[in-house]
């Protein structure tokens, strides 16, 4: 019974394909059919919520009843008076700048090494990209385990060598917690820079480098005058993407220490979550979101200027 059922099912599928393919819809109609569902979903789940958030930032919202009362710029005024806001902004800046700059240099260096003619190069390329695939939850588990004061390998090895006399709790210390999140961020996202740089290195015109070598340029000069300008547009796009993604990153930062100890790892996204869902300050949370969007737009426009310049220089 089951066996005889299958061919007919397959046939039905075929019939549908044929029916669809013999349909003759005019171009404008077809375009509408193809575009509208996607646009509706993007509107409902991204654009409208974004506008709602912007709108809500001018209201006082009771979280229990969800009654809204217009209060102008009061949310912003309140927020700008909170030292927690300014500290979070500073921590976001620290987190974004150190993570993306170190990623950039490390990523380009690794890409240049993996671009050389080395044995096992392809295997190494595959392995180096691994951290990019590891979910934030696992990264947080792993580092918590490695840095655990009593059981972690970090403390044990350092104590065995004799560098440490007694175990240190690095993730529960407000002074060090953020730095370990930064290291984890660098670990996870350097592969992205490697990937982008390698892709660009592979399409570099060989004649350019050969010609420069014939003219007597040394390796450093070839890199400085040929390779680097060629990489520049990709470097700028990569940095733009990394800056924005790091700025909005929530999962790794939150899962490492839940914003603590003593708010020491609260960056802006973690602050939004804290305000909205722990402190029930929905208006100020919306105001923080709006400020985040403004910062992102400002940063992107700076990058686009650099990008256009780098492209011009290549041509």
């Amino acid at each position: 019974m089951i066996k005889s059922d299958q061919p007919t099912k397959k046939l039905k599928w075929r019939v549908w394909i044929n029916r669809l393919s013999s349909l003759d819809i005019s171009d404008p109609k077809l375009a509408l059919i193809m575009v509208i569902p996607t646009m509706l979903i993007i509107l409902v789940f991204a654009i409208i919520p974004m506008l709602q958030g912007f709108y809500a930032s001018f209201f006082q919202i009771e979280s229990a009843t969800l009654t809204m009362q217009f209060n102008g710029l009061e949310n912003y005024q309140w927020l700008l008076k909170q030292s927690l806001f300014w500290e979070s902004l500073w921590r976001s800046f620290l987190w974004v700048s150190t993570t993306s700059v170190v990623q950039l240099f490390l990523g380009i260096a690794v890409a240049l090494i993996l671009h050389q003619e080395l044995k096992a190069r392809n295997l190494a390329r595959g392995l180096v990209l691994f951290p990019y695939l590891i979910p934030a939850v696992v990264i947080s588990l792993t580092w918590r385990f490695i840095l655990d004061p009593t059981l972690g390998i970090f403390n044990r090895v350092l104590m065995d060598i004799g560098i440490l006399k007694e175990p240190v709790a690095l993730l529960t210390n407000p002074k060090t917690a953020l730095w370990f999140i930064i290291i984890a961020g660098i670990w996870k996202y350097t592969p992205f820079v490697v990937m982008m740089t390698l892709a660009r290195l592979q399409v570099i015109p060989v004649e350019l480098e050969e010609a420069a070598k014939l003219d007597g340029a040394n390796a450093i000069q070839v890199f400085r005058y040929i390779t680097l300008p060629w990489l520049m547009p990709v470097i700028i796009v990569t940095m733009l993407l990394r800056t924005i993604w790091t700025f909005r990153q929530y999962d790794i930062v939150y899962l490492f220490a839940f914003g603590g100890p003593l708010f020491a790892t609260t960056t802006l996204p973690v602050l939004v979550k804290y305000l909205a869902f722990d402190a029930y300050q929905i208006g100020p949370a919306a105001a923080t979101s709006t400020i985040m969007v403004i910062v992102m737009i400002a940063v992107s426009s700076i990058y686009f200027k650099f990008y256009n310049k780098a492209e011009e220089r290549l041509n």
Partner: peptide, 20 residues
């Protein structure tokens, strides 16, 4: 609009989507 939606931090959508 697509690019805008692509660039938007998920965190700023969380509160409105929660209420939706």
């Amino acid at each position: 609009l697509t690019l805008l939606a692509y660039m938007m931090p998920a965190i700023i959508l969380v509160v409105p989507i929660f209420f939706l």
